[in-house]
Design a binder for these strands. Structure first.
Lengths: 255, 255
DNA sequence: AGCGTACGTCGTACACCGTACAGCGTAGAA
DNA sequence: TTCTACGCTGTACGGTGTACGACGTACGCT
């Protein structure tokens, strides 16, 4: 297993955990459990939010909840399943206000913004969440249902509705991934863009030759100068969302 | 550092490596180098293509090129820089045929397809490549220049051109990431979709309640039944690309 | 020609990861 | 009361990236 991202272990166990299958564990003998799966997931979420996904270690999580490292494995089959539970818990906690707006465009905007807010609040999600084959838990189901409801009245077929939602979420995911990468690059280099440019001036001067890369140099400079930093998240968001909605409009409002 | 994805080390060293700065290493004393940076990168690429990104280990790479593990560090500052070099080498090797088509739509389609082909040929790229703050090497510059040229004649401003390209590449990246995840899920579970559904029938029957999730159950089933597998890559590609281009058309062909 | 030394190479070691395994004490069932 | 299933734990294994210091080589200078 190269990366325990999601979906390992025997699937039924994972599903039972996701849906909190109480009947599967009728409490037999031995001492009572000292913590709960919910506490475990909550602590793992806090760990990831505070110190990043890299800080979510079985040992660190165990210490945070006050048990031994190996005890975690009596609650969760492995780290992959833990990540699944974390993602689904976040999905479940998302706000789901009723769709009041009559305009599909404003409804889809809300869908996109809600997902963006989630990914910005928990940047590590972009490293974990998969669009296809996600953890089939109650959180994802509720999220999926609510977001599908935003497409009510668009006149799209069932298949197209699913594809359109996937497309919209794909844009949000790509945007937030890029935004997060950009933020981290400026953060942990401890170097402003200007400083970086200045420090590498000698190499860059030869590399960025306007004769061999006329468009790249001109447009790259223009894109960089147009906003404060080299990559302005707000501008990219507005641009990308407008393009995405326009693309869906061509389908929804055709004829 | 949670994940040595890209961009560590002192930046000038990385840039010199990317641009093959021969003048920076005038060859002084001691024994000659037994391998070259290019061989190192080529071997790392082969390793990643054959056995996945997880197989790209400093030790494995060292053994493949016939040196000791620590010797690799005399060529490359660290693993992050190695990944940068791998990505840029792939970018540099991409085909760049001249743009002959007069239609911007077919040109952008080619841009998207070329990027999709690259990401499908090297699935590990989706785990490494960042849209923003990528390795500023000759490969990226050539790729950027060539893809910007596809926007010639669209009438877009410099800033919008950059944003539009980023938007298009973002779609490709999101699509390929999803496609790759889906493929891996069906592969390493060694279980067909039908088998999986059957095995988890008891839990799923209660979870997928049509009363609480009316749209999700109906549309999810429709989307799954409409094509062979639960997530048909071809269909999603055509849909997403059409939506993306339509979205750009609203900007390019406006008024 | 001889030598000092800068440089390439390497073995060892450290901290950390996920987790397999076996032992131990507890508490419900017989 | 005895049995036993279960929760918990310490230890250990194989893996990762890489810091450190030792060693031999071959160039540049005297």
């Amino acid at each position: 297993m190269t990366d325990p991202s999601t979906g390992g272990g025997e699937p039924s166990r994972t599903l039972a955990l996701l849906w909190g299958d109480a009947s599967a564990a009728p409490r037999r003998k031995g001492p009572g459990r000292s913590v709960s799966v919910d506490q475990l997931v909550a602590s793992a979420l806090a760990l990831a939010d505070e110190q990043g996904l890299g800080a979510v270690t079985m040992r660190a999580l165990a210490e945070r909840v006050g048990v031994s490292a190996m005890s975690v494995y009596t609650y969760v089959p492995g780290k992959a399943e833990l990540l699944d539970l974390m993602v689904d818990a976040l999905y479940l906690a998302m706000p789901r206000p009723p769709w009041r707006s009559r305009s599909w465009r404003s409804r889809l905007t809300r869908v996109a913004e809600a997902n963006r807010d989630l990914l910005l609040a928990h940047p590590w999600l972009t490293e974990v969440a998969a669009l296809s084959r996600p953890p089939l838990g109650p959180g994802l189901m509720a999220k999926y249902e609510h977001e599908l409801a935003a497409y009510d009245g668009t006149g799209l077929s069932d298949v197209d509705t699913d594809a359109a939602l996937t497309h919209l979420l794909g844009f949000v995911q790509a945007h937030c991934r890029a935004a997060h990468d950009a933020a981290r690059a400026t953060t942990d280099s401890a170097m402003s863009d200007a400083d970086w440019w200045a420090a590498n001036q000698p190499v860059l001067a030869r590399a960025f030759d306007p004769e061999t890369y006329p468009r790249a140099v001109r447009i790259g400079a223009a894109a960089g100068a147009a906003q404060g930093s080299a990559w302005n998240a707000d501008r990219a968001w507005r641009f990308g969302l407008a393009r995405t909605l326009d693309g869906l409009a061509a389908l929804i409002e055709k004829d």
